[in-house]
Write a protein that binds this DNA or RNA. Structure first.
Lengths: 171, 171
DNA sequence: CTTGGAAAGTCAACAAGGCTGACATAAACT
DNA sequence: AGTTTATGTCAGCCTTGTTGACTTTCCAAG
């Protein structure tokens, strides 16, 4: 049928949006290039420290939720404990992450950034924030609001599929 | 000092947007989760064929620009020829990609999807388009327009840096 | 108090997909 | 004729993901 490659989005009020496969394809490509640009600066910084993206992710989420446990991190990152542990071990050895035995439950390890770890985190996130600010500034405030809305929808769809159990991860 | 972590974006007309580091951080996280969700469906499909994301990217861009050369693909994907060749070789061997010697310049190889390759491409891109449509539908048309604007800005910023002779182009 | 299972850690082996370096071949350009 | 360009290939290394098979610690239920 002629309508097979057209997505019809009814607008609230009077607006009406047609999304052809080609328009969606451009969005898909934009995601690819945008994400690459988005990780380019941190990747470059991490290289100087001998780390990779996996280290960045761990550092990011430990910073966001200080005292989080290993299993928490595992469910957020969606990798195996062997994979995460390899990364975490080097970060602890290098004095970027502190690993405290839980008080309530002594099996758990609560993770914190050391001052040294916090410094790297700031360096990494600042690069990403700058990159994002540049794009925001060029796009304008209204576009930014829409961007965040769509991204949050994509995120929610993803979270719903993967974390049916945990409510503690991302607000 | 209180303004150091606040980005002030002047709106056209009356709107005014303040972006705190925390708000930017949420955007950064949303990118991470959104991109993961974005690649989840294709990754699952590719696994059945014994392929990975690298194969997907090659298939995508060959489909977008049929007859593109290897060096073209190299500059778009930003990987080494050894890395790309490994992927391309398996795709040609498996009969998904056709590799034709150039007529004008016989050194060049022009890449095309075979019908079999086109079938996989459709399966992959359809999954991604569906995912994107879901998010678009939930967010609404106005948000979609903004989303695309910001993403295109991020993409342009990246393309500009990428094709600037690959130095220490960050400022 | 015993025991089942959860949380964390470790070892080993493997794969995908990046990378560098070296080298080969054919075609085009000068 | 000699150089450059486009492509391909071999070999080896790294990061980061995987599975499987344990062990240790320790909470909590029977």
């Amino acid at each position: 049928m002629a309508d097979r490659n057209v997505a019809n989005l009814m607008g609230r009020g009077e607006s009406l949006l047609f999304l052809t496969d080609d328009q969606l394809r451009r969005g898909i490509e934009a995601m690819f290039f945008a994400y690459r640009g988005f990780t380019a600066d941190p990747d470059r910084i991490l290289q100087d420290y001998g780390y990779g993206r996996a280290h960045h992710r761990a550092i990011h989420f430990i910073n966001r939720t200080p005292g989080t446990t290993v299993s928490n991190l595992l469910s957020i990152l969606g990798v195996t404990k062997q994979s995460l542990n390899r990364v975490l071990r080097t970060l602890v050895e290098d004095g970027l992450v502190d690993n405290r035995v839980g008080t309530r439950d002594k099996r758990e390890r609560h993770l914190f950034l050391t001052p040294k770890g916090a410094t790297l985190e700031r360096e990494l996130s600042e690069a990403q924030r700058n990159r994002m600010r540049d794009a925001y500034r060029a796009a304008g405030p209204e576009a930014v609001a829409g961007f965040r809305t769509v991204l949050e929808q994509m995120m929610n769809l993803e979270m719903r599929r993967h974390y049916m159990d945990d409510g503690e991860s991302v607000k």
